[in-house]
């Protein structure tokens, strides 16, 4: 691989509130390569949406990037002004799919009018060319081409979401940032949309930053994943590395908290307690109060993100006990051993 598409390096984002500064993202780092789907997972309030918003200058007015760098194709963009973001990045390079499509479409304009408006601001293409591009994208997301001239209310909820995806994609951005794009949709519709995203990746080499609480979607659709807890990246790596060889207790407990239709009888993991209040600085592991394997060391200082194994440079975890935690976890769960065992064995076969 040559230069990565997006590099987020030690990003820290703080919000100014009445009760003082709140650190919403703390030293987050990850890389998205061209044609790569990257998932950012975690509970609500863990900072995953803030991370994404900071990339395209979408932070609320009381929030700011206090340190760290964001590089897009090698250029630092964390200090870009609104004007620069609009002229150089938004839509054309980086597109945003919001959680709720209904609120992001203008009800008074047809989809094609909205597309032409966006297109004339961000590109030099003619109206006819823009409409042609939108048509193409409509057929990719499975909407009839002729419906580009419809108003948003003429679409059903799932179709609106796909229309928003088509709008986000029609200028052929290199990176799509999607914040819970399918959470409000039913499983079948979710699968339809990911089918389209897969196709777009295959055709256009598009990258995706997918923010979701649903780790099963990430494991299925992404190549890399970062799991965030209390504003920090707990573990980061390829989905296979994080799935087969998780190191951070939060990562494997989070994973085990998800029901899996293949194992309806498996006991679901429960992560007790809550992450600490996000204050100025946390001088200890933020997971310590929820972690069954915490030791004194975990309370004395905060672990740094460190490589898990020598042969996998991108797999990192921030846990003092990353060497033994997963083994401890597996040995302590007799009830699930049989199923996990089978799963592990089939994994090795692969």
């Amino acid at each position: 691989m040559t230069e990565p598409l997006l590099e987020v390096d030690d990003l820290t984002v703080q919000y100014e509130t009445e009760s003082g500064m709140i650190t919403a993202v703390s030293d987050a780092s990850f890389v998205i390569n061209e044609g790569e789907f990257f998932g950012l997972a975690g509970e609500s309030g863990c900072g995953k949406s803030t991370t994404a918003k900071s990339i395209i200058g979408g932070l609320d007015s009381n929030g700011q990037i206090t340190s760290g760098k964001i590089r897009y194709r090698g250029t630092e963009i964390q200090d870009y002004t609104e004007k620069q973001l609009n002229e150089e990045l938004r839509w054309k390079e980086i597109a945003w799919i919001p959680q709720s499509a209904m609120n992001s479409l203008d009800p008074l304009q047809t989809i094609s009018e909205q597309a032409v408006e966006i297109g004339t601001v961000h590109t030099d293409l003619s109206k006819a060319e823009l409409r042609e591009k939108l048509k193409e994208m409509f057929s990719i997301v499975g909407l009839q081409e002729s419906r580009i001239n419809d108003y948003p209310h003429q679409f059903s909820g799932g179709m609106q979401q796909r229309a928003v995806i088509a709008l986000a994609l029609f200028l052929e951005p290199s990176l799509i940032i999607a914040d819970e794009p399918t959470t409000a949709l039913d499983v079948i519709m979710q699968d339809q949309i990911f089918k389209h995203l897969d196709e777009i990746k295959a055709k256009l080499d598009t990258s995706l930053l997918l923010i979701t609480h649903d780790i099963s979607v990430i494991f299925e659709s992404c190549e890399t994943v970062a799991i965030m807890h209390a504003s920090q990246v707990a573990e980061y790596g390829t989905v296979n590395a994080v799935y087969d060889n998780p190191r951070h207790p939060y990562a494997f407990m989070f994973k085990a908290a998800f029901p899996d239709v293949r194992e309806p009888d498996r006991e679901l993991e429960v992560i007790e307690g809550y992450p600490p209040q996000l204050g100025e600085e946390i001088g200890f592991c933020s997971f310590v109060d929820r972690c069954p394997w915490a030791t004194e060391e975990c309370r004395e200082s905060a672990p740094e993100l460190e490589a898990v194994a020598d042969d996998d440079p991108i797999h990192v975890a921030s846990c003092f006990r990353k060497e033994e935690a997963y083994e401890l976890y597996q040995s302590e769960r007799p009830t699930t051993e049989s199923q996990d065992g089978i799963a592990a064995m089939t994994n090795e076969d692969d």
Binding site: D191, E220, N240, N347
Partner: peptide
């Protein structure tokens, strides 16, 4: 069948085929 096959499987080693359904 469509409903069951569309449920995401939390396992990157599992290769699930995407749904064949379209529309709503």
């Amino acid at each position: 069948e469509a409903l069951v096959s569309a449920v995401p499987i939390p396992d990157p080693n599992h290769d699930r085929e995407r749904t064949r359904m379209s529309g709503a």
